[in-house]
Design a protein around this nucleic acid. Sequence first.
DNA 1: CTTGAATATACACTTTTAAGTATATACAAA
DNA 2: TTTGTATATACTTAAAAGTGTATATTCAAG
Lengths: 124, 124
Amino acid sequence: MNLPVYYQLLSDITRLRIVSLLLEGPLCVCHFQELLDQPQVKISKHLAILRKKGLVEAKRESNWMVYDLIQDRDRGLRKNLKALKQSRSGEKLLEEDLERRGRLLSSLSKNPGLTPASICCTKG
Amino acid sequence: MNLPVYYQLLSDITRLRIVSLLLEGPLCVCHFQELLDQPQVKISKHLAILRKKGLVEAKRESNWMVYDLIQDRDRGLRKNLKALKQSRSGEKLLEEDLERRGRLLSSLSKNPGLTPASICCTKG
DNA sequence: CTTGAATATACACTTTTAAGTATATACAAA
DNA sequence: TTTGTATATACTTAAAAGTGTATATTCAAG
């Protein structure tokens, strides 16, 4: 990961929102679908781009793919991600995403038996 | 200036180099031409984009246009620019730009009578 | 008021990137 | 082994962004 690639990845609003959410912790594809209210293809493709460029990684959890930021990040990347995290206030879209994430996670913790799918993707 | 716009501006390598240089201080168009070794149109157009989006400002100095980062920057922007500044080491291109800038400015200070033009744009 | 230097802009062209549709893959459960 | 759910990929189309050439603008100097 070098700087030009990093900025290019964040230059798309969908990817920016994804990365912003991942700063708070890992999420699966269907959660992104719900939180960003965007179609599955779109989410999957942007996640694929982020993964190909080495900013995020994915692990399968039975049927679900859980994405997270790459863990061993170089100094420069850490600094920039920290700056991003610290500069979200005032960014309406990003803040709303975080709020939605909070609600989603709290509903998850109240019903520990729920799979991701039963929360976000469908029909309860 | 909001985050999405900011990242989009930096997603182009030429603009990233320009902004990186401006972190060290103002420069005129012909300096950018020399330091980045890129044609005038290209430099001018990217500077126009940066200006239109509110990241840089320009003031005319007789025949030359001197560009600088916008001075009153919001908190988020400051944080991100600081992170950029701190994460340049290891980025070959950006480091070379800074070295070239150093050489250019030292030659300027040795010959205080020189206009920008007599340094960078042409035929001594 | 003409000339030349520095910079900006308009237009045409090319490349890149994003988005949608359809289809494929991977897995779990029946 | 069929079915349904989650996710990924191929292909196509549309939009955006970058680049070059030519031309315009602005200013200083003669």
